[in-house]
Nucleic acid binder design. Structure first.
Lengths: 150, 150
DNA sequence: CTTGACTCCGTACCATAGTCCGGAGTGTAG
DNA sequence: CTACACTCCGGACTATGGTACGGAGTCAAG
């Protein structure tokens, strides 16, 4: 049985070697001790852990969040509800993002449907509606420089 | 009439001073010439341009894309269809993003609904399904190291 | 005419998720 | 035993959209 050196671990996990090193630097996975001479060998758990990370990424979790998830996994007293709550929070985030994008979609559709689609740019309603957003005369909520700059 | 120095331009456009400078560095807006002595004054067009940028950002355009949009605006022979095509392409991107997020949503919902929601982590089905993704024995599509690393 | 707020400018830094590089060491096939 | 491929390692670089800093100059009020 060939030792699980980094290249094999990477191909098993479906990531690049660089990604493994990156995760090691980020503390998402442990770097195996370096033998006195030779290459590091990775335990099979590391491959699982990387797959876990990729799965969670596909669900929209950031590496930071995944790190927390993995910490929960390691903590002795973790309750299932902790994990479930995180999943629920993420679901809400995803919902919000979808709503925002749907708003964008509506705006884009509107823009496109109204645009004549040919002719000089003068007549382009898209450019117009992007450009003309007049009517707000600064200083509504900003009294000083500082507030705006903060 | 007070001169439109950067702080006033920023508050009128609803961005920070730093953002204006950043856009100047990026070439999205022109930096007004510096007077021999004193502060730069911005033309009103710059404020409009910044508002245009923010509007387009809200529609999901990146700064790079907005730069192109602005270039179109400036080019003499630009046809309205150029702009329309970009908006349409962006609409497709947004649609794709929404679909991806909906896929994520479905997966998260499924995970959450199956999870008991309480009890030890051992029993947490979310963790389980994230962790157990066995069945792919590396090297399906990767013959060499290089391919994986690329 | 001083003080305090502001501008100007380059540079460095933040987060996110990696990717690439180059030199030195190592493992193995021929 | 010698190539050659691979590992190890730190550090630099990518893209995105800004934010922060520090010192020098400037403007306006008191």
């Amino acid at each position: 049985m060939k030792p699980l050196i980094i290249s094999r671990a990477a191909s098993r996990a479906g990531v690049s070697i660089e990604t493994i090193r990156f995760y090691e630097r980020k503390g998402l996975i442990n770097q195996p001790p370096k033998p006195v001479s030779g290459y590091r060998t990775y335990p099979a758990e590391t491959v699982c852990r990387i797959k876990f990370i990729r799965q969670a990424q596909e669900l929209g979790f950031s590496l930071r969040e995944i790190d927390e998830l993995l910490a929960l996994k390691a903590a002795p007293g973790t309750d299932c509800s902790d994990v479930r709550n995180r999943a629920t929070a993420k679901l809400h985030e995803v919902d919000t993002k979808i709503e925002q994008l749907q708003g964008i979609r509506v705006a884009l559709r509107e823009l496109i449907s109204v645009c004549p689609g040919r002719g000089a740019l003068r007549a382009c309603t898209i450019m117009e509606s992007l450009a003309s957003v007049e009517g707000d005369k600064e200083g509504q909520s900003s009294t000083t420089q500082k507030e705006n700059t903060k």
